[in-house]
Amino acid sequence: HNGKLCKLKGIAPLQLGKCNITGWLLGNPECDSLLPARSWSYIVETPNSENGACYPGDLIDYEELREQLSSVSSLERFEIFPKESSWPNHTFNGVTVSCSHRGKSSFYRNLLWLTKKGDSYPKLTNSYVNNKGKEVLVLWGVHHPSSSDEQQSLYSNGNAYVSVASSNYNRRFTPEIAARPKVRDQHGRMNYYWTLLEPGDTIIFEATGNLIAPWYAFALSRGFESGIITSNASMHECNTKCQTPQGAINSNLPFQNIHPVTIGECPKYVRSTKLRMVTGLRNIPSIQYRGLFGAIAGFIEGGWTGMIDGWYGYHHQNEQGSGYAADQKSTQNAINGITNKVNSVIEKMNTQFTAVGKEFNNLEKRMENLNKKVDDGFLDIWTYNAELLVLLENERTLDFHDLNVKNLYEKVKSQLKNNAKEIGNGCFEFYHKCDNECMESVRNGTYDYPKYSEESKLNREKIDGVKLESMGVYQILAIYSTVASSLVLLVSLGAISFWMCSNGSLQCRICI
């Protein structure tokens, strides 16, 4: 991952900044910058967002509201009850120091605090018919004063009620008058409520006091790749198909172990950190130390980045220098085999997901714990399936590479015959000098055995068991695999060879 928040398929997220979902939807004055928000790819909250409900109280069923919003990608904020005409018999300019803005008392931008007009609070009834052709999110509140005197001074009615009804919602609220500790300079409380109004449905408000009335509502448009994440990451000019709280993932790998919460087309989250597919040879310690064997393909974004291909070729060293050249036929066979294998694994496992966190309130801790156990169970199954699949494929890959290298080895052996000696570690020792032209003939299969047989015969008789390297004779190393990324691999195959001279070296080696 890149540690950044990015656009998702070209669409920017909605960053709530210092506000949370509650503050944004109710219209906390400190969240005025969010009022123009219309569309987004996903919503970003920060872990310690401080601006929620400015007048103390709870947004009821907040967790369910977050779940609903996680599939919303755009909205239209509109005046559901026009301020100047909807409440002619009531005062609608209630403000509070708890919702101060720029040093002055204020109130929510989407709600109206209705109080008595003169000395009376006549029963009010108002309704709205949803003609938007889509779901409408309606929010309101109920004020709970701290004393009967406060109730009387604001609403005149000691036994007030609030009723809200639609086809799918029907509740009646009565204020709970009680002494409470002071929070944000208030002994009173406000509880906030919401409902989704279906197209064509009607919502009716009736009250004799204590109503925090809707002013603006939201017509919602769903987008199934949307979601809500909690993150401290910063926004950058970048684009992605998959976003996590820790950063964007741009990967076609089937798995990731970065974060379980994802938005967009994302690899499946697994616990494993070692889900690797081999593309090189079986481990040979001396070669492995030099980083030549054991190439791997990573299938977990965050564990290993991208696929690494092994390729086969020849390396030689003689009086004229040293050089490398790919054996294109065996390399292409290996590439085709690995590509098919990788595609097979991805096809089997690479279903892209959006995974969002589930919200539970403080009273639902047991449910949250149960949900976590269920999620953990599914996660263990996914991890096991992934590891088992790759384990089985790896064994076949190792066998496949062994065969490829063996074929190259036999190709060289059949040409050199007794003009060189096998020394048991995949290397041959020449009994004759071999210049670049000679080396090329070994690589392309045109090695002239009779041409060098007499010199080889004489050297075999002279050496008589002495280690060949100390006599200045020449080696050919018969097994060799270097490691390159897919891009470098293609470039390498396009070149005939490249040279690395070893000044004054008397050794001649050709490596497979």
Rank of each mutant, 00 (worst) to 15 (best):
N252F: 11
E410D: 15
Y431A: 01
Q246V: 14
L490F: 02
S251N: 11
A355V: 14
F498S: 06
K413M: 10
L281C: 04
Y324W: 11
G298H: 08
E368I: 05
N404M: 14
W499N: 08
L281F: 04
K433I: 15
E319R: 01
C511Q: 05
K358C: 09
S481C: 09
F293C: 03
D399F: 03
L370V: 12
A233L: 15
D309V: 02
A326E: 03
T262K: 02
I510H: 03
N444A: 12
P285W: 02
M439K: 10
N257G: 01
L392F: 15
G424N: 06
P245F: 05
Y269W: 01
K373S: 04
I479A: 12
V278Y: 03
A420D: 00
V473Q: 10
C438P: 06
Q317R: 11
L490M: 12
P285E: 11
G294L: 12
G426W: 11
Y409I: 14
R443L: 02
E395G: 06
N436A: 08
D327Q: 07
L458I: 07
Q415F: 02
E440K: 05
G337P: 00
S481K: 10
V483M: 08
Y312C: 04
S505L: 12
F255G: 06
D309C: 05
C501I: 15
T383R: 12
C238V: 06
N340G: 05
F498H: 10
E347Q: 15
P450W: 04
F498I: 15
K274D: 01
S272G: 06
P254V: 07
L487R: 11
C508E: 04
K411W: 09
V405I: 15
P450S: 10
V442I: 13
I335T: 03
C438D: 04
N404I: 03
S485C: 10
I479W: 11
I463H: 04
S251L: 08
Q507F: 02
A420N: 02
L489Y: 15
Y447H: 11
W499C: 06
W304Y: 11
K241G: 09
P285H: 15
E364A: 07
V345K: 02
K457E: 13
I496D: 05
V442E: 07
